[in-house]
């Protein structure tokens, strides 16, 4: 499939009212359609501000800043049009659940966009089935786990058929099981619906699964590239309060202790195979 730029930010600045420091500084960024981008950074690095800028929940404070989403310039005039293309899943599963039941919650976004009832009755069961929540259509949120609520939030986004889905620390409050399920579902939907995913996270193992990793520190991009490229910069990441995923930690430890590992090895499976081969050759 042809790769097109779906998100383009140039010179984006944002300062919160009454804040001394800008939360986002001179941010330039291009994302291609159908890819998974992980945006990482320590608590307070400006990650969530970026997600709000991408959906017009905040607007840049510099008039020269430009944000293009799905071919549209994002301005207060176009914001509702742009939001049709962008869905966000937020961090707290309980605080974004609007409906009294699972089906009502998925319906909320559809109702806002004036989708006909007949169409809602088609789409809601379909998206609930996609996230594995079909049996819970009438369940109330207080009877669901955090992971289940996040899956409902994803269904709510999918129902609106957006081109872009932002996960704003959507897995931070989940247990490992819920986290894995959410990531697996999003990955499947990305391929199936050709979605562009932006995942804001400090789960580095999650970031390691992305096509592209962006590292934000004090509102500025300090590194971009594939996970392999970014996670090579161990010192830089450590300085900005992050750590390496397990695989990169192991690799650098082994190298430091004199076991040479070729740079062509970029995954855990490859490392296992390499070490076992090394063992046979001994």
């Amino acid at each position: 499939m042809e790769q097109k730029d779906i998100i383009k930010l140039s010179q984006v600045d944002f300062t919160y009212p009454e804040a001394e420091q800008p939360a986002v500084k001179a941010l330039n960024l291009t994302l291609q359609a159908g890819t998974w981008t992980a945006l990482i950074g320590h608590n307070g690095s400006g990650k969530s501000t970026v997600s709000k800028l991408l959906d017009g929940l905040l607007f840049p404070t510099n008039p020269d800043s430009q944000i293009m989403i799905a071919g549209l310039p994002l301005t207060p005039e176009t914001v509702w049009e742009v939001r049709k293309h962008v869905g966000i899943v937020f961090q707290n599963p309980d605080h974004q659940f609007v409906g009294a039941t699972v089906a009502d919650d998925v319906a909320f976004g559809l109702e806002n966009r004036g989708i006909s009832r007949a169409e809602m009755q088609r789409r809601i069961p379909a998206v609930l089935a996609q996230v594995g929540m079909a049996d819970y259509a009438d369940a109330e949120p207080s009877h669901l786990s955090g992971g289940q609520k996040q899956r409902v939030a994803i269904a709510g986004v999918l129902a609106l058929k957006p081109q872009i889905m932002i996960l704003d620390e959507a897995t931070a409050m989940l247990d490992p099981e819920g986290r894995k399920m959410v990531i697996d579902i999003v990955r499947k939907m990305m391929v199936q619906d050709h979605l562009t995913i932006i995942s804001i996270t400090h789960d580095l193992d999650e970031a390691n699964l992305a096509d592209q990793v962006l590292v934000l520190d004090d509102g500025q991009l300090i590194a971009t590239g594939t996970p392999a490229e970014v996670f090579q910069k161990a010192a830089l990441l450590e300085r900005s309060g992050l750590a390496l995923p397990f695989f990169y930690q192991l690799k650098s430890e082994l190298m430091a202790q004199g076991i040479n590992i070729p740079t062509t090895i970029t995954t855990e499976t490859e490392l296992v195979a390499y070490l076992c081969q090394l063992n046979l050759n001994m």
Binding site: H42, N43, E169, A172, M173, H202, E238, G241, L242, A243
Partner: peptide, 10 residues
């Protein structure tokens, strides 16, 4: 340490 970044968690 839930929700903290790796450094804070450590």
């Amino acid at each position: 340490a839930a929700g903290l970044d790796p450094k804070g968690r450590h």
